[in-house]
């Protein structure tokens, strides 16, 4: 199951990191706006929440951590 979670997190990371830079910026996140039912403000909130060190870019590790937390919450519910 851990591999599946990692695989999913990486898939989602790649959706955000279209240019395959290895990190996701605020702009990358805002680009998802037409595709996802979230407002620009909400996408900004998602970015800030995932950006644990607050350096303005999301690493795969930060993304995976956020996704794991989300899954744990879902399981708890």
């Amino acid at each position: 199951p851990e591999l599946t979670v990692l695989g999913k997190a990486q898939e989602f990371f790649q959706i955000c990191d279209l240019e395959d830079k290895g990190f996701v910026t605020r702009q990358d996140m805002q680009r998802l706006h037409p595709e996802l039912p979230l407002s620009l403000e909400e996408l900004e909130k998602v970015f800030v929440t995932l950006d644990a060190d607050g350096n303005g870019s999301l690493t795969p590790k930060e993304f995976i951590t956020g996704f794991s937390q989300f899954l744990l919450e879902q399981i708890a519910l």
Binding site: E11, F12, I15, E35, L36, P37, L38, E42, L43, K45, V46, V48, T49, L50, G66, F67, Q69, F70, E73, Q74
Partner: peptide
């Protein structure tokens, strides 16, 4: 604690975000 409040709101948004990604993935062929 304002941080606690911000955290709670962000969690909901995060769940919304990942749920959207999940349905986007499963929704496409």
């Amino acid at each position: 604690d304002p941080n606690m409040k911000a955290g709670a709101t962000s969690e909901g948004v995060l769940a919304n975000f990942f749920n959207s990604l999940l349905s986007k993935k499963t929704g496409s062929p």
